Simulated assay, not measured.
Amino acid sequence: MDIRTGELSNPHVIKLLQAHHNDMLKHSPVESVHALDVTKLNQPDITFYSLWVDNKLAGVGALKALNTTHGEVKSMRTSSNYLRQGIAAKLFTHIIKQSTLRGYKKLSLETGTVEAFLPAQKLYTCFGFKECEPFGDYELDPYSLFMSKAL
Rank of each mutant, 00 (worst) to 15 (best):
P44V: 15
A120V: 01
K106D: 08
T5E: 13
P44K: 10
S80G: 10
N67Q: 12
G112T: 08
I14S: 00
N67M: 12
Y82W: 14
K15L: 10
S99V: 10
H21V: 04
L145E: 05
M147C: 06
I46A: 04
R102D: 10
A120C: 01
V114P: 01
L8R: 00
D23C: 14
I87E: 03
Y49I: 08
H94A: 02
Y104S: 12
F135W: 10
T39G: 12
K105V: 15
I14K: 01
S99Q: 06
D137M: 15
L66S: 06
V30E: 13
N81P: 02
F117H: 10
L145V: 12
Y104H: 14
Q43E: 07
K97S: 12
A116S: 11
G112M: 08
L17V: 02
I87M: 12
K40Q: 12
T113W: 04
W52L: 07
N67S: 13
S50V: 00
A19D: 13
L140N: 13
P44H: 14
G128R: 11
K90D: 06
A35N: 07
S28T: 12
D37I: 01
M24L: 14
E72T: 07
A116P: 02
M76V: 05
S50N: 09
T78H: 01
Y143W: 15
V13H: 00
L25I: 07
P134G: 06
D23Q: 09
F48G: 00
K15C: 03
R4C: 00
V73E: 00
K40C: 15
S79G: 04
A116F: 09
A35I: 03
L123E: 00
Y124F: 04
T39A: 08
I3K: 03
A116L: 04
Y124I: 01
Y49A: 09
W52T: 05
G6V: 09
Y82C: 14
V53K: 10
N55K: 08
P142N: 09
D2W: 05
V73M: 04
M147N: 05
M1K: 13
I87F: 06
T39M: 04
K90R: 06
R102K: 13
E133I: 13
A116K: 02
G59N: 09
V53C: 08
E31K: 05
G61M: 11
G103N: 13
G59R: 04
